[in-house]
Computed example of a mutant assay.
Amino acid sequence: MGLSKTGFGAGFGALAVPLMALAVPVPQAAAIMLPLLAIMDALGLAAFIKEFDRQLIKLILPAGLLGTVIGTLLFGVLPAKVVAGVVGAITLLFLAIRTVFPPRADAPPPPRWLGFGLATVSGFTSFVAHAGGPPISFYVLPLRLPPVRFTATMAVFFAAVNASKWIPYAWLGLIDLGNLSTSAVLAPLAPVGVWIGVRLVRRVSPTLFYRLFSLGMLLTGCKLLWDGIR
């Protein structure tokens, strides 16, 4: 997750909760990850805060926060594994479309209404299982931002979305001493991934960057879909 927070291999980030859910229930896994995400978000913002796309954030951030509100209202009603399966299926469908019909260099950017809708879905899936990366990527990837600007924009978006989860998670009873203790044990690993990712994302070519991103989304889509159907 730390590596993914810098954009380098960002598709892998959505695997964190499903993998942790092999050992603990999904809500507990999400609660354990939240303090770790706060650390990673702070480090990511420190590295990239000056380089995000302001116009894009004005579009997607309000939608992402709306998604967290929807997630709060539906938490416990819609099983997290159902959400994971849907996100996995959509992720694989998106990758298949991009492989069969690769975007042209002169293709127009996707419509803004699609960005608002996908950002809302991203806020919802991020709230339920910290799996917000794939939905918002469907809109942002075709914009062909430079890797650093893409990373900076995603850092700002998810830092705000993750910060908005604290009060709802506490209200839902997910913030407790046991989960926070586990977070504290894992916390020293968070800066390591971010440190590695910050250095890699500034050195790799855009082509390699987006290929690695797609690989991460492929593996994430397969894992999330498997969680949903097994």
Rank of each mutant, 00 (worst) to 15 (best):
L45F: 13
F48S: 09
F48M: 12
K50C: 04
D53Q: 02
D53T: 03
K58S: 15
A63Q: 04
A63T: 13
G64Y: 05
G67H: 13
G71L: 02
T72P: 12
T72H: 00
G76K: 09
L78D: 00
P79I: 05
P79D: 00
P79Y: 00
A80T: 07
K81D: 13
G85I: 09
I90Y: 13
L92A: 09
L93S: 08
F94R: 09
A96V: 15
I97F: 03
R98F: 04
V100S: 10
F101T: 14
A105M: 11
D106L: 05
P108A: 10
P108S: 03
P110D: 04
P110M: 15
R112Y: 11
L114H: 04
L114D: 07
L114K: 00
G115Q: 01
G115E: 08
G117Y: 01
L118V: 12
L118P: 08
V121K: 00
S122I: 10
F124L: 14
T125R: 01
A129Y: 01
A131V: 13
P134G: 03
P135R: 02
F138A: 10
V140W: 08
V140G: 08
L141E: 12
L141C: 04
L143P: 09
L145H: 09
P146V: 14
R149F: 08
F150A: 05
F150V: 13
T151Q: 09
